[in-house]
Design a protein around this nucleic acid. Sequence first.
DNA 1: TCGATCCTGTAG
DNA 2: CTACAGGATCGA
Length: 263
Amino acid sequence: MPELPEVEAVAARLRPLVQGVRIVSCGQFRPTTAKGADSAIGRVVERIDRRGKHILVRLDGGVFLRVHLKMTGNLTVIPDARLRASTVRAWFEFEDGRAMVLDDPRALGRVSFHHDGEEAELFSELGPEPFCAEFTFEHLLRRMRLSRKPVKPFLMDQRAVAGLGNIYAAEALFEARIDPRREARRISCGRISRLHGAIVGILRSALDSALRAYSEPGGFTEGENFPSAVYGREGEPCLACGRAVKRIAQAGRSTYFCSACQR
DNA sequence: TCGATCCTGTAG
DNA sequence: CTACAGGATCGA
């Protein structure tokens, strides 16, 4: 489920619920789910940050929990730590009886405990945040010139820019009218400029709708999010030209695109 | 750079 | 039953 916009929405909803609360116990589904989680016991949550698709739960004493939701994870607060859904894979009980839980049917999501000093190394391969000044057209150009990957797997690998996944990479390439199969380094300056704008624009509007969806009373309403132009629309008419949207496999993932509009 | 792998659920 | 899933890592 989550790319940068959804992860940011999860973090935003968490913030007011956990700030200043002390963790008194924790548990996990399997020892690989939340490595080092016990070290969080007795600490107070100071802040929730996000870096790419990672959620950082800052704790007192210069440490943090890193949470990655992978495909189907969700990080929420439940009112009673004892009443956990069967899909909860890691939980952190608070003094007041509530709990922050990693709920993930597919159990791919991970939590890990770190000292602040490890942060730089932890994210040394992670590209800049798409909404930060560091993510410029020049930066994208430079990175693209170095990669022989097809541009869509290139965008998904988190090193050129953090936070894009299978949906928004496809959507950005559609908006920029670029063929997802094209080698990154063989794409012209003009197209890269369009792509840069499309990445920021797509993530911006997806973030807006994710924040809206998460703030509504019903909570998280999946699918009601961002209306896709190409993702998941195999065989349906391209919104620009009417020809059928295609689906191909790239690096083991589905890629949706319009072979007429994207060249 | 590609395929297998981690996991479970759901759609066809 | 098989295919596939809004992710990422690992080894060949």
